[in-house]
Write a protein that binds this DNA or RNA. Structure first.
Length: 486
RNA sequence: GGCGGCGUACCCAAGUGGCCUAAGGGGGAGGUCUGCAAAACCUCUAUUCGGCGGUUCGAAUCCGCCCGCCGCCUCCA
């Protein structure tokens, strides 16, 4: 039984999807007006693991993650650059997709765009008006005469505030939004905005206009996944007002519960501070990808629980990379030194029993941090067993356990998106980061071997030190000298 | 001001009533191996979980107060 922390009830609950064996999940994707940062990566990776884990557990999962491709920020950006807004949206959707691919994030089942959901959005707004949850007002500065804005009537939804724990009266009192006399209530939010001159617009019953931000998620999730979702995710900062408003829209329109389990991921901080444009400490996914292997970034992100804040630092990424090296070094040793043992086929039942402790921590609110801890205990154990076997020979227990371990790593890696490569592939990738050629390295190693044969330790150590400066580590093994990237 | 979260070793980070006399990674000290290293392994590095009280047979885990940090309340992953 999977248990999840539900932001709505603020408790961990047993996870039972509405329809047995099927999970419908929706996660708020990016507004595509700029390159995505490491915080977007965290959200995407966290829900990627949840998605994969649910599938791995045997659920049939339908997962939607949207692109908000129409928004003030996109329009502003287009204006600044003097290009059509569509171009901005297209450019950053592509950039986001590239980043996700680099990070090994699986594409969701559906990737809807707001601009491709306009008819559903319009229909949704109409329903809200029909049911008395929305009203139109005369638009200001509209391009088209007589065009209307549509607002959601927050007071018409009694449980408004149930997700964010906010009290409508207190929100009212502390409202920082500028007063707009056309609105019945300062808290009312836009469902549809009449477009101004030069803005993108669509035909609607209220004249040419464009959708508000919150409505697109309600409309997209409903049209793709139905009226009640099992899981809805996003960053913690979306709880209010975005997700609160989604609930108000969807539940007012359908009369049914919108979401069974609300999941929210924590932030990536830099020096304990939230990343923000104003602080100028935004770190794009690309920035980080330039300095570290994508898998190390994933390991860093998954080494903390998804709800906790994590602090980004070069040291933290270096540690993640070192830990990954350790894993692949061990895997390499297993496959290279004990091929007859580790590749032995393991029975499904046996594997299942072996993985039990691992799935137990994942079942507990997707605790990837604890899982990674367990994996590294096994890395240690694998090395210990191999140390012993190489001295005393491989006994039956060794032959039984080693294939399970190898297979276990691979299996767990399937939903973590980690530990799934061959060691050759992993180290090959690291080699791309160094400037010295393999021929040069081999040449220097041969030279060093000569020196070693002469017992010219001084010269041998010089060569080793020189390679080290170039990012190459040498290891003298009984089978000869091997090298790898630092 | 309202709402929410966090504070575990030198650093990162699990654990949230008894498997904890507290995982895992990094770092440090010593050792095995080695020409010396590296890698790997072994031992050590929190009798203690921000502080003070309380509940309990039993608390890092529950409750209260205090201290410190952070987020949301406006666009935001």
């Amino acid at each position: 039984m999977i248990r999840v922390y539900n932001s709505l009830t603020k408790r961990k609950e047993d996870f039972t999807p509405l329809k047995e064996g099927e999970v419908r999940m929706y996660v708020c994707g990016p507004t595509v007006y700029d390159l995505s940062h490491i915080g977007h990566a965290r959200s995407a990776v966290a829900f990627d693991v949840i998605y994969r884990y649910l599938k791995w557990k045997g659920y049939q999962v339908r997962y939607a993650r949207n692109y908000t491709d129409i928004d003030d920020k996109i329009i502003n950006r287009a204006r600044e650059e003097g290009v059509p807004w569509e171009e901005i949206a297209r450019r950053y959707i592509r950039a986001y997709d590239d980043d996700m691919r680099a990070l090994g994030v699986e594409p969701p089942t559906y990737r809807p765009k707001a601009t491709e959901t306009i008819p559903q959005i319009i229909r949704f707004v109409e329903v809200l008006i029909e049911k008395g949850h929305a009203y139109t007002v005369e638009a200001r500065d509209a391009e088209e005469r007589g065009a209307k804005d549509v607002y959601y009537r927050v007071r018409s939804f009694p449980s408004y505030g149930k997700l964010s724990g906010k009290d409508i009266e207190e929100l009212e009192a502390g409202a920082r939004v500028e007063v707009d006399e056309r609105k019945e209530d300062p808290l009312d939010f836009a469902l549809w905005k009449a477009s101004k001159k030069g803005e993108p617009s669509w035909e609607s019953p209220w004249g040419r206009g464009r959708p508000g931000w919150h409505i697109e998620c309600s409309a997209m999730s409903q049209s793709l996944l139905g009226e009640t979702l099992d899981i809805h995710g996003g960053g913690k900062d979306l709880i209010f007002p975005h997700h609160e408003n989604e609930i108000a829209q969807s539940e007012a329109a359908t009369g049914k519960p919108f979401v069974r389990y609300w999941l929210h991921n924590g932030f990536v901080n830099i020096n304990k501070e939230k990343m923000s444009k104003s602080l100028g400490n935004i770190l794009t996914i690309r920035d980080v990808l330039r300095d570290y292997p994508a898998e190390a970034i994933r390991l860093f992100l998954l080494s903390s629980h998804y709800r906790s804040p994590i602090d980004y630092s070069p040291e933290a990424l270096n540690e993640a990379e070192a830990a990954l090296d350790r894993f692949y070094l061990t895997m390499e040793r297993m496959e290279r030194d004990w091929p007859d043992v580790v590749y032995k086929v393991v029975e499904d039942e046996e594997l299942k029993a072996y993985l039990e402790p691992y799935t137990k921590v994942m079942d507990d609110d997707f605790n990837t941090a604890a899982l990674i801890g367990l994996i590294y205990e096994k890395v240690n154990e694998a090395n210990r067993l191999m140390d012993r076997a190489s001295k005393e020979g491989a006994d039956d227990e060794f032959k039984r356990v080693m294939p399970l371990m190898r297979r276990g790593f691979v299996e767990l890696g399937r939903f973590l998106g980690l530990f799934y490569r061959s060691p050759e592939w992993y180290f090959e990738e690291k080699r791309k980061r160094i400037s010295i050629s393999e021929e040069e390295i081999e040449q220097m190693i041969r030279e060093r071997d000569e020196a070693r044969k002469r017992k010219d330790w001084k010269r041998a150590d010089e060569i080793r030190a020189e390679l080290f400066r170039k990012g190459i580590v040498l290891e003298d093994t009984p089978k000869g000298t091997v090298w790898r990237v630092k």
